[in-house]
Structures are given as structure tokens and as C-alpha cells.
Design a binder for these strands. Structure first.
Length: 743
RNA sequence: GCACUCUUAGCUCAGUUGGUUAGAGCGUCCCAUUCACAUUGGGAAGGUCGGAGGUUCGAAUCCUCCAGAGUGCACCA
């Protein structure tokens, strides 16, 4: 015990409390203590009797961070929200599980490693070969993983490390293969020759959701295929016209009615075209000339038109975005070059009628930035419109035995409120997306990921969990879209396809907390997978958070140079201050702003609580806590505080964390410290009296309960104070993290 | 083009179901400070709640229209 306090306190003040609060000295030590206690694991909580068995379970999966790098502020935001939810549930006495994990992030990770290898060794993945390349990726993924795990610990997350999962580990592989096989056997997954989004840079297909549209100025050319061709068409991609097999006009367009059904043979830039005039209502008569040159092999909408009119398909562009043999003398040339030569040819033949500059969106690949070339390829798809018999009785609005599609399942559970999305405006966005959903292309021509569990031999195809026994079968070289495995995350982490105890007691998960930017990628896919494979929803509530922005409202990103490293912030301000800065005032669906001012303010707050503790230890704590000792006025203050506790509890239960955090902050600083303590100071320094006793009981009760209320948001400092104020004669030291939530 | 969100103090934002006199933090100004407080306290100034209309006993909150900012989706031939 210290002998050097400024003023001799009535009770001994622990040394630690005499200095300002220093998170760096506290955080790692406490995290280790929490981990050692085992309380992150619900089974241990159960064994040690800190669970109230009458309460419902609480379970949540961590949205697995990509092993493409380290965590950013967005991840810190997510961790702060989830840990607050988890700590609240655990303190309530619910059997609480939070499962950690990381995502192999197929394309993203492979692209990153390819970039590194190309930069450092001037090699591509083919130079290394599949086996060696995968070794490199795995090494990289492991290093990222280790950093990520460290960051999660630094943030103070009370997550059950004993159940950590990886989307590409053995158990998750089994889940992926089992899911694939079931869907394949049921005809939900099929292999088909269809037009897909091809990324020439990444040399793979991607799904519709992995496309990012970028606005660009480009030229719109209006021209005729030939002098004697009756209709002029407009295009921004003259080079693709070599693959045209039709011209489509709107059925009601009087200008072109007389031509519909006619066919023409044309020589176009040295290539022979056979063009049929068709009428299709997908054509907008207002745009350009109101006539579309139909290129079925290299445009999504043209593909659809071609399907409706049974038009032939002429692929002219290959995987490297070069012209194919069908392009005659242009064979082997790059698409961009061919555009110029086709325009030159058109000009020479005086076929161009108009040239105008327009703004137009070009499709690029999210991960590589490559310009998407739509082209027909033999790929694997999930059929979202195939009818099947629902086998489950657990889905709201859908009867057992009823014929449904995946689309209908995904709609039903949200429409019927079985899964709620917060804020609810995102439900509309979700519905809109599903209504426009097309079959999901799940095969990727990359190496890093779950290899498709299908084997080929001669003309035979075999889908199974493991390779066929007999010789000669060759496995499909493609891997699965990373979202296929993340779609299983709520139950693959619980042991599915095995019927584990975890699966029985923790699924559906209570809540899924993630950023609104992956509503389609991930949330929709989890609902798809869970309703189909388990016949149950994956989660009851979806809580969507926004982006983290800087002081001026800019998106935080490396390219803007305003990148913030959570570890840096933690070492400067402490994890608690960072968590509070991210949480206070940021409701679901809203973006969070972070600034040094805000971080400083909550660091000050930490110190304020620290000082409150110092003062109260010296004057109040370790005295009686019997509420019967309260005098009438104090009794009333205490009752007001009880109302306050209920209010906080209700905010937590309704996921209004941002309000709860702010209210506790206000209460501790501006009610407890500024008003109550100030008011009681003279009494506390006076002679012993019933009034003094009453003040001590009041402040003691309010402070210890306030620590509990604040714990989900600022776990480190509250735990540290808790340990310092416990009387030394307590036999077994208790942790605040498993103390019962104050009612 | 369709949809959604936002617009409240100088700045950043709360404001839960429509209900006293619209709040906080930061900033500014004044005062106090040998005090539990390196990071303190008290106080002040500052708002026609984007604009117009409507519903209501009552509107920052609900409805309609308008303006500005942002986001998502689609089209993009």
C-alpha cells in the first residue's frame, strides 16, 4: 500500500490507482486473464455455474475477415459492436457463444499474392505451378491470419478461440463438399454453357455481384453494317459487331416494322455476317436509332434476346480479350486495337452517320480492375429458379412439401419476419435484389479455394465428397466462389454436416452483425444456404453497420492516404477509447466518424472513471452496501438510478447500443461525478453519521453497477477497476465479465 | 431511370411511440481551481429543426411537393 497520497485517505488506495490510467499496462494482461479463465467458452461458463439455464442462448458468428491483409477501422468497428453485444448477453447469464474465424477470400487473396510474386520475382502463377503457388498463398494467408488474430485480441473481443474456424480448413471443406453434392443431386447446381462475366485480367469468371461499374466517357458510333443495309445501329463497341447475328427493334416501332423477319448477308470489315431482323421488347426505341446490333456471345442482354429468337452464337473474343479465328484477318489482335481498325474501316467505307461522346458505365472486376468481357463458357451455376419440394417445417410462410425455388425461400423468411434486418429499410433493398437475381455462377478459374468436387472420365461426370476409387477420373480444375463457403458459415462453424451438440444448441444464431456493403454477397447467400440445406434460417436478426469515415466524412482507405491502423490507435488511446469512439452515436446502418478529438475525449473519459474510482476507494468503497441504510433523499436518487439501469437494459435488448453507450457516458461523468459526488463530498469528509453511511452506500452501489453497465463498451478499464476495488479478503477473485447484469 | 438515406447550434451529431422550455460533444467567451482529476469544475452566448403546404389539441418527428447532398440497383445497344 502506498504511503504517498496527497492526502491521507480513509481507506488504503491501491498503488495502481494513484497514477493516471494507462491502458498499455492493463490491456494485454487482462486479456490474458480473461482467456485463462475460460469464460469466452460457453461450456466453461456452464461448468462454472455462471449461466442462468432458464434464459435463451445467444450465439453469433464473427464475419470472418479476409486473409488478404490486416484489419482496418471497419473491422474494429464491427468488433466493438459485436463484443458489446456478446458481453451484455454473457452478463445477463445467457449461454453465449461468439465464434471466430477467417475467410480464405479466394480471388482477393490469390490476386494479392500474384501481385506480390510478380513484383518481387517477376513471375506469374503458371511459372510456379499450381502446387508451389498454393504453398505461397497458404504461407501468406497464415501470416495475415496471425496478425488478424492478434488484432482481434487487442480489441478486447471475448470470443471463443477454442472454436476458431477457417473457410478453407478441413471441417469447412467437408461442409462445402457436402453442400455442393446435395445441391448437385437435387438439380439445384448444374453445369451449363452460358454467358458469364469473364475477367481477362484475373483469368476467371466472376459473379454479377463482383462487378463494379465505372463511369467513363466514350464514343457512341451510329453506322450501318453496309451501304445497302436498311437500318442504322448505334454502339460503343464497334469491334464486337463482328459477332452480330441479328438486329433487334422494338415490336411497336413503326419505322422498322417492315423489316422484321428479313435476313441479310453482309461483308463487314472483311468478315461475313448473316443478320436477321427481330422484334424484341427489350429494345428501347428512344435510344440511338432504336435498333440494336445483337451480339449474342458478348453481351448479357443480347444473349437473352438471342435465346428468345433462337439466334446463332458467334464468339469472337477469347479469354485474353483478343479476337478469335472467327474474326478473320483480325484474329489475334487485342480488342482495343480492333475497335480502332473497325472504326477506320467504317470511316473509309463512309458508313458512319454519327459520332458522339457519351457517359457510359463500364463493367470492371472488383478485385483485379480488369474490364469484364461477357462471353459464353461452360461453368457451374446455382439455379435460383428451380422448383424443389421444401422438406422443412421451420420456415415461416412455407409448408412442408410445398414446391418452392431458392428465390422464394430467400424472400419468404424475411417477408414473414422470421429474419429481421436492422435498419429495416435494408429489407427493401434485399427484396429488390432477389427479385432481379439471376443464376449464381459459382465456378472460378483460380487455384486458391475449394476445388469443385466433381470428377470426369471420358464422357462421364461424377460428383461426390471424395474422388472415385477407380483410376482415370480427373477432378474439375475450377474452384468455388468464396461466397459459397462463407454462405455456410453460421452452421459450418458449428460442425455441420455432423449433427453436433453445438449445432443443436446454437443454431439459428441469434444475430448476424456485419457491414451493409455485403448484404447481397454474404447475408443473402447465408439465407439461401441455410434455408435450403438446414431448412432453417441462419439468424434471427441482422444488424447492419455502416462505414467508418474520417473527421471530414471521407471513406477511410489506403488510396486516400487517411488510413488508420487500429493497433496504432489502441496504443495511443487504448482499446476502450477506440471502441467508445466508434460506437457512441452510430446507429445501425449509419456510418461512424472517427477523429482524434473523439478518441481523445474518450481517453479522457477513461481517466475520469479512473479518478472516480480513486476517490471512491478512499472514501466509500469497502463499506456496507445495505440499501436499508439509505436516507430518503438518497433512496430517491437510487430509485432514479434503477430506472436508468432499466433504460440501458432496454437499449441493449433493442440493439440501440449507440444510445446506451452515450447515456452511460453522460451518467458517469455528468451525474455521478459532477453532481452526486460533489454533493456528497462535505458529508464524506465529515464525522461518521447516518447521512455519511447513506452517502457511502449510495455512491458505492451506483458506481459498481455503473462499471457493469459500462463493461460491454469499455471492458478493460472496468475490469481493472473492478479488480482493484474488490476487498482483499475475498477468497476467490471474481471477474467483472461474468458478473450478473444489474437489474 | 427506379429506390433509399440525409439536411437540427460555428463544427460533428443525438433526439426511441407525435407530448413540458429541442439536447450533447468539440469550439468560442466569462469565472473558479493547494480540490479524486497531467485529461478539473461552474456558467454564458449560439437554433424560424433545408423550403413550402397539409394532418393533429399538439409536428424536428406523420403526409405531399420542392431544393441540395449522398448511397444502392438497373440501363448503358
Amino acid at each position: 500500500m502506498s504511503d504517498i497520497p496527497k492526502k491521507e485517505p480513509s481507506y488504503p488506495v491501491p498503488d495502481a490507482l494513484l497514477k493516471p490510467y494507462n491502458p498499455a499496462e492493463v490491456e494485454d494482461r487482462l486479456y490474458a486473464e480473461w482467456e485463462k479463465s475460460g469464460y469466452f467458452n460457453p461450456d466453461i461458463c456452464e461448468q462454472k455455474g455462471v449461466i442462468d439455464p432458464t434464459l435463451p442462448y445467444f450465439s453469433i458468428v464473427l464475419p470472418p475477415p479476409n486473409v488478404t491483409g490486416v484489419l482496418h477501422m471497419g473491422s474494429a468497428f464491427m468488433l466493438a459492436i459485436e463484443d458489446a453485444m456478446v458481453r451484455f448477453a454473457r452478463m445477463q447469464g445467457r449461454k453465449t457463444l461468439w465464434i471466430p474465424g477467417t475467410d480464405h477470400a479466394a480471388i482477393a487473396t490469390q490476386a494479392k499474392v500474384e501481385k506480390l510474386i510478380s513484383k518481387e520475382e517477376k513471375k506469374n502463377r503458371h511459372d510456379l505451378g499450381r502446387e508451389e503457388f498454393l504453398k505461397r498463398v497458404e504461407q501468406f494467408a497464415k501470416e495475415s491470419h496471425d496478425v488478424i488474430v492478434k488484432q482481434i485480441r487487442k480489441t478486447g473481443c471475448s470470443i471463443d478461440w477454442s472454436r476458431e474456424a477457417f473457410t478453407l480448413d478441413e471441417k469447412r471443406s467437408l461442409a462445402v463438399k457436402t453442400a455442393f453434392k446435395r445441391m448437385y443431386d437435387d438439380g439445384i447446381i448444374y453445369r451449363g454453357y452460358r454467358i458469364v462475366n469473364w475477367d481477362p485480367k484475373g483469368q476467371t469468371t466472376i459473379s454479377d455481384d463482383e462487378i463494379v461499374y465505372q463511369t467513363e466517357k466514350t464514343k457512341l458510333y451510329t453506322f450501318r453494317y453496309a451501304k445497302d443495309f436498311p437500318i442504322a445501329i448505334a454502339t460503343t463497341r464497334p469491334e464486337t459487331k463482328i459477332g452480330d447475328t441479328a438486329v433487334a427493334v422494338h415490336p411497336d416501332d413503326a419505322r422498322y416494322k417492315k423489316y422484321v423477319g428479313k435476313e441479310y448477308d453482309i461483308d463487314f470489315a472483311g468478315v461475313h455476317l448473316h443478320i436477321k431482323i427481330v422484334a424484341d421488347s427489350a429494345v428501347n426505341p428512344e435510344f440511338g436509332t432504336g435498333a440494336v446490333g445483337v451480339t449474342p456471345a458478348h453481351s448479357m442482354t443480347d444473349w437473352d434476346i438471342a435465346q428468345r429468337h433462337h439466334l446463332p452464337l458467334v464468339p469472337i473474343i477469347d479469354e485474353r480479350a483478343r479476337m478469335m479465328e472467327s474474326a478473320g484477318s483480325l484474329h489475334g489482335k487485342k480488342v482495343a486495337e480492333v475497335r480502332i481498325s473497325v472504326v477506320e474501316w467504317l470511316a473509309k467505307e463512309t458508313l458512319i452517320e454519327k459520332e458522339e461522346e457519351i457517359e457510359h458505365n463500364i463493367a470492371t472486376a472488383e478485385r483485379t480492375g480488369g474490364i469484364i468481357e461477357p462471353m459464353p463458357r461452360l461453368q457451374w451455376f446455382v439455379n435460383v429458379n428451380a422448383k424443389f419440394k421444401n422438406q422443412s417445417e421451420k420456415l415461416a410462410g412455407i409448408k412442408k412439401g410445398e414446391e418452392v425455388t431458392l428465390k422464394e425461400l430467400m424472400l419468404a423468411v424475411v417477408k414473414n419476419g422470421q429474419t429481421k434486418i436492422l435498419p429495416d429499410r435494408f429489407e427493401k433493398v434485399y427484396f429488390h435484389w432477389i427479385e432481379n437475381l439471376r443464376d449464381w455462377c459459382i465456378s472460378r478459374q483460380i487455384w486458391y479455394g475449394h476445388q469443385i468436387p466433381v470428377w470426369y472420365k471420358e464422357n462421364k461426370m461424377h460428383c461426390d465428397i471424395s474422388a472415385p476409387k477407380e483410376d482415370g477420373w480427373v477432378q474439375d480444375e475450377d474452384t468455388l466462389d468464396t461466397w459459397f463457403s462463407s454462405g455456410l458459415w453460421t452452421f459450418s462453424t458449428l460442425g455441420w454436416p455432423e449433427e453436433t451438440a453445438d449445432l443443436k444448441q446454437f443454431h439459428p444464431t441469434t444475430i448476424l452483425e456485419t457491414g451493409y456493403d455485403i448484404l447481397f454477397f454474404w447475408i443473402a447467400r447465408m439465407i439461401l444456404m441455410s434455408t435450403y440445406l438446414l431448412g432453417d434460417i441462419p439468424f434471427k436478426t441482422v444488424y447492419l453497420h455502416g462505414l467508418v469515415r474520417d473527421k471530414d466524412g471521407n471513406k477511410i482507405s489506403k488510396s486516400l492516404g487517411n488510413n488508420l491502423d487500429p493497433l496504432e490507435i489502441i496504443s495511443q488511446y487504448g482499446a476502450d477509447a477506440m471502441r467508445m469512439s466508434l460506437l457512441v452515436g452510430t446507429g445501425p446502418g449509419n456510418d461512424s466518424r472517427i477523429s482524434n478529438e473523439k478518441l481523445k475525449a474518450y481517453k479522457h473519459f477513461a481517466n475520469k472513471i479512473w479518478n472516480v474510482a480513486r476517490f471512491l476507494v478512499g472514501t466509500t468503497l469497502s463499506t456496507d452496501t445495505d440499501l436499508a441504510l439509505l436516507e430518503p433523499a438518497d433512496r430517491e436518487t437510487y430509485n432514479t438510478f434503477s430506472e436508468f439501469k432499466k433504460d440501458i437494459t432496454s437499449d441493449f435488448e433493442n440493439y440501440r447500443l449507440y444510445l446506451a453507450a452515450e447515456k452511460i457516458y453522460q451518467y458517469l461523468w455528468h451525474t455521478l461525478a459532477d453532481i452526486l459526488i460533489e454533493e456528497k463530498k462535505p458529508i464524506l469528509s465529515g464525522e461518521d453519521s447516518p447521512a455519511k453511511k447513506s452517502a457511502q452506500v449510495l455512491l458505492q452501489r451506483i458506481f459498481t453497477d455503473s462499471l457493469k453497465l459500462l463493461h460491454p463498451f469499455m471492458p478493460f478499464i472496468t475490469e481493472e477497476i473492478w479488480s482493484l476495488i474488490q476487498s482483499k479478503d475475498t477468497v476467490e477473485k471474481r471477474l467483472l465479465m461474468t458478473e450478473r447484469w444489474p437489474e
